Amino acid sequence: MVISLLRRGGSDAGGARSVSAGGAGVAVRTLAVLLQAGARPMTAWQHLADSGDPVAGRVVERCAAGAELVGAIDAEGGAWSDVAAAWEVATIVGAPLAEVLRALAESLQDAASAADDVRIALAEPTGTARLLLWLPFAGLLLGLALGFDTIGVLFTNPFGAACVGLGIVLMLAARWWTARMVRTAQPAPGTPGMHAELVAVALAGGVGIPRALRLVELSPADLAADRSRTDAVLELSRAAGVPAGELLRASAAQQRHDARVQGRVRAAALSSKLLLPLGACTLPAFLLLGVAPLMLSVLASTPLPI
């Protein structure tokens, strides 16, 4: 069950992973407090649902319909798939569930903060790119405001029709190119360091490292890099003779920090990279759709000398 949860949670990057890790972190922290106070798992979820949390309400409804608790949590997707996986690992190995959830809540909120930082950094260059895509159409409106029939020229003059076709192609190319750059600069799906966190959860239950690794050995593609870092931390733990749990949590925290820094760097680089579609596509499209029709209108309205 753990493996299936991890596989679904990591593969649906475009949809389920869009669930807010920050919102999940707040709810998970509340669950940890309720469990630490002595509430049973389903009672804690019911209290959270009664407080108005929509995710908890849906989880309680699924459980009332006969679903298992872990499956009901995983059905929410996104960050909740990580919560479901950690919940089941802790249950299997007998780790203190309240402590596991408290540590997981901090991880989810750190990941949400990193993603928010990247989105804020991307807001300005992304908004600028979208604004510039309207520049050619602004040229058409400017021609109309000056009293020239720029739109009519585009469809009655052969050169105008050619300008329309080539300008539209350039606009579509600029839109595709800009969108591709913005997607590349977006944070990677998933919670950085989650592989190390899950292994640390398993070790907290007192199991050995081999069994802990077997619980997550079929991790999805987006956790493959995390697995190599987890192995490096475990090797360091064996060589130094120190417990691996704290080292794994420190490694997970470092991975979240690295993701935040790399996201900021990508966002900063995006501002200069957006000049490429601007110079190669948007400005030529402005000349074809804005300036060229104006010039053709001027020529058409100018009487020929006798």
Rank of each mutant, 00 (worst) to 15 (best):
A300M: 13
I306N: 13
L48T: 00
E68S: 15
L234Y: 01
V93M: 11
T150I: 08
G77T: 03
P158N: 04
S18Y: 06
P243M: 08
W134D: 12
G66Y: 15
T156W: 05
P293R: 05
L31P: 00
L287C: 11
L131Y: 08
L213D: 02
G147D: 06
H257D: 14
M42C: 00
L133A: 15
R40I: 00
M1W: 12
A121N: 05
L69M: 14
A232E: 08
L135C: 08
G205S: 06
A37D: 09
R8E: 10
A253F: 03
A114Y: 07
V298G: 04
D53T: 00
V70K: 04
D74K: 02
L166N: 02
G241Q: 15
R256K: 12
T178S: 14
N157E: 05
V118G: 01
L133I: 11
A75L: 04
D82M: 06
M181R: 14
G66P: 12
L133C: 07
T30R: 09
A221Q: 10
T178Q: 11
G193S: 02
A161V: 07
G127N: 07
C281M: 11
S272Q: 13
R40S: 07
H257A: 14
G208R: 06
D12C: 14
P136G: 08
C163Y: 05
G127Q: 11
L5G: 04
P187F: 05
A244Y: 03
A16Q: 12
L131N: 10
V291F: 13
E68M: 10
P189S: 08
A221D: 13
I73Y: 02
M171G: 01
L104G: 10
A268V: 04
S271W: 05
A32E: 05
P96Y: 10
A32Q: 06
G77L: 02
L34M: 08
L154F: 04
A13C: 10
D231S: 05
L247H: 05
V199L: 00
L278M: 11
G94K: 08
I209E: 11
T230N: 00
A280H: 06
